[in-house]
Design a protein around this nucleic acid. Sequence first.
DNA 1: CGTCCGTTTGATACATTTCAATAACGGTGG
DNA 2: CCACCGTTATTGAAATGTATCAAACGGACG
Lengths: 222, 222
Amino acid sequence: MLTQTADARPYAVPSRFNVRIGPENSIGLFRGKEKTFSPNEDLFSEGDPADCIFMITRGAVRSYKLLGEGRRKIEAFRLRGDVFGFDSGKEREFCAQAIDEVCVLTARRHSFVDAATGYETMRELCAVSARELRRVQQHTLLLAMTAPQRMACFLIEMLRRLGERHIVELPMSRQDIADYLGLSIETVSRAFARFEASGLISLPTSRHIVLHEPEALQRMCE
Amino acid sequence: MLTQTADARPYAVPSRFNVRIGPENSIGLFRGKEKTFSPNEDLFSEGDPADCIFMITRGAVRSYKLLGEGRRKIEAFRLRGDVFGFDSGKEREFCAQAIDEVCVLTARRHSFVDAATGYETMRELCAVSARELRRVQQHTLLLAMTAPQRMACFLIEMLRRLGERHIVELPMSRQDIADYLGLSIETVSRAFARFEASGLISLPTSRHIVLHEPEALQRMCE
DNA sequence: CGTCCGTTTGATACATTTCAATAACGGTGG
DNA sequence: CCACCGTTATTGAAATGTATCAAACGGACG
């Protein structure tokens, strides 16, 4: 029943545009072709040539790296409006995989990096890179916190990025969250249970979260 | 006795240069005035105007953030040859503090960011920013590991950045290492003791480390 | 020689992981 | 509509790793 909250969200992305459309990492001059991906389909893998940049117009993507012994580190969740895939080198440093049904705009990388595109575009790319840097720095601070704190940060982040009032519809599984926060899936689940028991949140379903006390969660993040 | 290994290292940085001098984050066009800092002296603090960039020509700097309850997170160690201080915003995100006797070259930030300096400089700044991004990403992967693994990564990193053959002279204290790796000082100390007991390293003094099996440590990092 | 500070070592407490079992959900086919 | 199944999520109990607390050690320096 809560699903419609997100589905009803009015949103449209033209296939060509030169305005900022998302809350994170937008590039004004972005132009690209639309492409869709099914759940768990790879947008690219580690080692692939890093020849294009993406902007998500629908769905969510996990950017991750596989470690030893079946461990996986999710480095970022890319959500609607996010621009990503600007790897510094020639090759991808991470895998990118669709979490749900995903629609993206792509643009060839060299069209941004070539001198011909001029100084302003270069500046924008620098800005994206800098924002990305801040995001990763924020994430390392998160990993220095306790499990409940990481969970609180995660909820606040999701509320900010895809929250509708005080309701969040998570596109990702508990395992995804665990791999993003550097916790076990059980700890994530228990943290949700604790938050609900404390009256901070409600969980109508495992993916739908109502934040009753976002300020309290916010305070936990420091 | 091991001290002379590092002190005798031949190295000179001219006060003006346009060549890459260090292994990390060098900018070719860097020009600046030399400045020195005593141990524990601040290069800058959080919130200061981010109006200049630094290149270290001598000593080591810790870049850190103070968290709640006397906790401190060291985000990076800046060593000789490193370029840093290119914050994306107008204000510093971190504090930078001299660990030992430090000598730096500084350059005003706007001289890099102004359109007048041209496209190439912009490109170089982008490259620095991208390298910095990769470094932070590497650091977050590190924080997902166990204590011995973090320690192994740390030793390998230090060997690469300031090692002479298989010997490392650490400029930083155990507390610094702990705050960098997200561990307690006791855990750091115990990890050193274990490595020594396993024959992986020797500790002639607490700051001088001989790596007998760098390959074994390297393997631990994955 | 004694003091001070950083480091090491030991004992205990705690948070989180791991292992194991149960429960809830989503889809499929009868 | 319901029964079945595989998957995902939750919950419990035990094991583990690291932090914390406390004390001893060591070198540098007056």
